[in-house]
């Protein structure tokens, strides 16, 4: 059920990618997304695909996890593919002597778009699979640091984000517990009309909100009683460092990115 959502889940193992600095992973992901979108001919497509496979290998996360992560967006991929096939102008496809509203250009475009979306999801999953949420928010905070000179409360933003991420599993667990408790009292969440089903959610949502507020309250008290004050001069338990492995990763990526651009211009 809810536990099956893999997108954004951390996968705690040892791998070269796990050891990388979150900042380099975030920045490289952004450039990876750019690369996926500027790839426009068979050779560059092949190159980004191979590079994505390399990322999967280096992350040491089982490929099944990536495939599972694709499931939630399968609908989007199919939907856009169908639209592309039918709505792109061009040469009509003939099937068994009939002219269909589908076009060859549409088919190619659909394939390209589907591949792009898949690569995009895989690359983003690679970041979250190999970086624990806490380290990820640390990385984001460090990257946003320059904005704090513009009076953007980067520290507070990062703190809010890490609290939110920290409580996702807790809330999922809570939801399951409450759902079970109400099911034990004969609740029926999956039958009846839509209106009836929405109404049936109240016994689940009310306790969930009540507990979320209670938790927020308890957390605030716990933080205040330990004199929490965000912002400057706070040190961390785990400092993040740009290491040798990051340098290698960045150099390899620069070569890859240059290749994409050059090959894109040449062909």
């Amino acid at each position: 059920m809810l536990k099956d959502i893999t997108l954004g889940q951390y996968f705690p193992i040892e791998s070269p990618m796990h050891r990388m600095d979150p900042r380099s992973k975030i920045v490289l992901l952004i450039f990876m997304i750019v690369a996926i979108f500027i790839a426009d001919n068979p050779i560059t497509y092949a190159l980004v695909t191979v590079f994505t496979l390399l990322i999967i290998l280096l992350s040491k996360v089982p490929i099944m996890m990536y495939i599972k992560g694709l499931k939630p967006i399968l609908f989007v991929i199919i939907f856009t593919a169908v639209l592309n096939v039918f709505l792109t102008p061009g040469t009509k496809i003939d099937l068994w002597g009939y002219t269909t509203p589908m076009t060859w250009e549409g088919l190619i475009l659909a394939g390209k778009m589907a591949l792009r979306l898949i690569l995009l999801i895989i690359a983003s999953s690679a970041l979250t699979y190999t970086t624990s949420p806490i380290i990820l928010t640390d990385g984001i905070e460090k990257l946003l640091k320059p904005l704090s000179y513009l009076k953007v409360p980067t520290y507070e933003l990062a703190m809010m984000m890490s609290i939110a991420i920290r409580f996702i599993p807790t809330l999922i667990e809570e939801t399951e517990k409450i759902t079970k408790a109400q099911q034990a009292r004969g609740a029926d969440f999956d039958s009846g009309s839509i209106f009836k089903r929405i109404k049936a959610l109240a016994p689940m949502l009310v306790p969930l909100f009540v507990s979320a507020f209670r938790r927020a309250d308890e957390l605030a008290v716990a933080m205040e009683s330990r004199c929490y004050q965000g912002g400057e001069h706070r040190t961390r338990l785990r400092e993040i460092h740009f290491k040798g492995i990051d340098l290698i990763a960045v150099l390899v990526f620069v070569l890859f990115f240059a290749a994409i651009i050059v090959l894109g211009i040449l062909f």
Binding site: K177, K180, A181, R185, A202, P203, V206, P207, V210, S211
Partner: peptide, 10 residues
């Protein structure tokens, strides 16, 4: 009756 059943009141 679950643990902390009062959490299911709504």
């Amino acid at each position: 009756v679950f643990q902390y059943p009062e959490h299911q009141l709504f």
